[in-house]
Design a binder for these strands. Structure first.
Lengths: 189, 189, 189, 189
DNA sequence: AATGAATGAGACTTCATTCAT
DNA sequence: AATGAATGAAGTCTCATTCAT
């Protein structure tokens, strides 16, 4: 991997960790600069400014997440199984990446999140979306608006990680599986 | 209502609206001052600083919410009914107060949220908590850690409002009832 | 003593102590108000503003000091003895009133000190001045400009108290007497 | 002299002049910024804040003074001569640098002055200290605590400059020599 | 005389960003 | 590409003082 990507990644890593710990407000460029070891002049070669770092980081995390969710996807499997795998992967990924999750859950509820951005990131999940459409066609899922299903996946898992980071919850594999089951009951027909 | 509470409330209203629209970062004291029509010097008679405004506003919203959730509570009713009412009230309140919800969902996923604060605000919900404990004793609810049940209420409803404010969803009463039903299936035994 | 003077004195006491501990900068009206227990509105009945408090306090301290220096003055004593008494009283007063001294030494080296003010305060010391003039006439003192003699009294004793308050020196009666002797040698013919 | 020292010096010069004229209170950062022609952001690259500027300036002046006092020091000369030179140099330096002196005398009687700082600055005067110790061993000086000797030098000379700046005194070379002689009589055995 | 909430100018400092090197 | 000193607008907050009660 060439140097250019190393720096991009260093900036992303620093930002993710800092925002996760201090929030968007209280995460300053100078903190990102210090943490990522990229000089203040240089950081502007990679990104137009602070907002661009944050938005690009969000997209990057989404892309990586999408890849992970589909990692054990088998095209010809029954939709039901495909769906369960995705749900389980979603919860696992979230639980295993608390900094990323903290960043994402702040991002989602912030004004950085726009309808256009949502539209763009949803395109990373095309395979994913297809499975859901199959599921709805096969009436495996309740007839709910798609964003509602998203909420049951995204916000529930983010909320779980928030609770874990507050020390209210231990995120064992068993718990993840139990919650996966609850969500499945919530959305399945 | 005396003048002193008017100012506190004006500050709260301005902050809630501004944070809901612009996020914590990008909501400056000067914006709050302009919007609330409380002078810059005076605002510091009411609150020690920006952080205190935000934290106190969160607590205030929580208190008002708690009152609302229990508004149609009937002591001798079956737990099952009590519970359904609370869940429905939760979703209704969230849906009817989008600024408050946007503020709260940003707050929850931000570093303002701490374990101590959570402990403090949970005390506003003591009646509420009792119903849940009854429900668990009567095995109306799955045997899940309490914070998980909280996530299904809080984060799902917040997420729904986020989606609505992005224009992806219309929060009709029917939809609220449908989601209430989904959540009920997720958490009920 | 009527109430009006109680408040004036409370304001003076608070100011003297606060300035002595925190300096002019860092001694705010709100600190004086808190410490003196005189309300913010009321304090402006007694003094036009912060500067007036400080200048009037300086004059007040000077008056009290002058009274003390002359406390054991005996008109017909030889000038030499009169002079020694004054010098000794000066050092004693300074040593026994460290807050007042800290205030005065800050005041003297600050821009609050003006030539007009000096002229005004010197008038409190007329008896005092007369002794010095006698002393010079009788050639008990070196032929030095009067302000130089003042420096040997005022600045040396202030400096001593500064050193004591820094913990570099213990101001025993013996030391005071020894320094009095040194000063006497410096200025006597 | 590289640029970096130019700015530091410009900040020091502006601060010294402004404090000397307006006192610590009433010397604002914006005045220092205006006078030194260093931008508001930049000044914080050189110093952590206002207090650091003031304390560092004091140390800087002390270092320069120490160098000056020892400028005509001759190792093998009799202690008596060495001492007279130092005393004379002290008075000359003070008299020739009224802004520095005004700054220093405000600093010394302010709460900026601490025992730790005194300990640090005294180390600049090690050669100086040695001469005094020799003098005491050779009984050229009275057996006084060292800080008392310091007071006769420092506070007397500062006081003289204060009087001069109030217009009460003209600091001619003759007067400086006369006062040097008085101080010598005060402290010599 | 007395109160203390209210004022708004101005304090110190941090910020995202630029630019000469 | 890279550096980090420099910028100045904007940030939060404190200040001395006023004024309605």
């Amino acid at each position: 991997m060439p140097k250019i990507d190393d720096k991009r990644q260093a900036i992303f890593d620093a930002t993710m960790e800092l925002v996760s710990e201090h929030g968007f407000h209280r995460t300053s460029m100078s903190m990102i600069i210090r943490e990522s070891k990229v000089s203040s002049g240089c950081i502007y070669h990679y990104f137009k400014g602070k907002d661009e770092i944050i938005v690009e980081l969000y997209k990057d995390l989404k892309k990586k997440a999408a890849r992970y969710y589909m990692s054990d996807f088998v095209p010809d499997e029954p939709t039901r199984l495909q769906l369960r795998k995705i749900v389980r992967n979603y919860f696992r990924f979230t639980a295993k990446n608390p900094h990323a999750t903290a960043f994402k859950s702040q991002f989602i509820s912030s004004p950085y999140m726009t309808a256009e951005l949502e539209a763009e990131t949803i395109s990373y999940f095309s395979a994913f979306t297809e499975v859901f459409e199959n599921a709805q066609r096969e009436t495996l899922l309740k007839d709910l608006p798609k964003p509602v299903v998203g909420v049951f996946l995204i916000d529930v898992s983010n909320g779980l990680v928030n609770q874990a980071s507050l020390g209210n919850l231990e995120l064992t594999d068993e718990l993840i599986d139990a919650v996966t089951e609850c969500v499945w009951q919530a959305i399945s027909a």
